Computed example of a mutant assay.
Amino acid sequence: MFENGITAKVNLLERSCSCRKFNLVKMPCKHAMAALRAKYGDGEGYGNSIYDYSSPIYKVESYLLAYSKAINVVPLEAEGTVPQELLNTKISPPPYDPKLGRKKLKCTKGIDFNLQL
């Protein structure tokens, strides 16, 4: 497909595009949409083909299946109970290596060599 001086290669069989959006998101990018329009025209086939070339995870059935089970809500902190052995546990900070990072420079005040007497 050719758009605004940029050429993108679309392969509808492999569901890929050189812009990589079609490959990553698994939903037709603007280049793939233009290729589908060129293949099917603006009729009924074009509208239905968009869903055929999208990943099944975007379909209503997949969405309903993903959220069909109950999601447990985390209780408020005031309502939660923490076991006593966890309350008494001391957590130490991770080991520290002072050699890491950028070396610090010592700045000293000196004579300004640009002054002329």
Rank of each mutant, 00 (worst) to 15 (best):
M1Y: 07
M1C: 05
E3R: 13
G5L: 04
I6H: 00
A8N: 08
V10G: 04
V10K: 03
N11F: 02
L13Y: 15
L13H: 14
E14M: 05
S16A: 05
S16P: 02
S18P: 00
C19T: 01
R20A: 10
K21R: 11
F22C: 04
F22G: 00
V25E: 07
K26F: 08
K26C: 12
M27W: 10
M27L: 15
C29V: 00
C29A: 00
K30P: 05
H31D: 01
M33N: 06
A34Q: 11
L36R: 07
A38E: 15
G41D: 05
G41K: 02
D42E: 03
E44G: 04
G45M: 03
S49P: 01
S49A: 00
I50R: 02
Y51H: 09
D52R: 05
Y53I: 02
S55G: 04
I57R: 04
Y58E: 01
K59A: 11
K59E: 13
Y63M: 09
Y63W: 06
L64G: 05
A66N: 12
I71V: 15
I71C: 09
N72R: 15
V73L: 06
V73F: 09
L76I: 11
V82D: 01
Q84T: 03
Q84S: 06
E85Y: 12
E85D: 06
E85T: 07
N88G: 06
T89N: 02
K90I: 08
K90H: 11
I91F: 04
I91Q: 00
S92A: 12
S92C: 05
Y96W: 03
D97V: 02
K99D: 10
L100K: 07
G101V: 00
R102Q: 13
L105V: 15
K106W: 03
C107Y: 09
T108I: 10
T108W: 11
K109R: 15
N114K: 11
L117N: 14
L117P: 13
L117I: 13
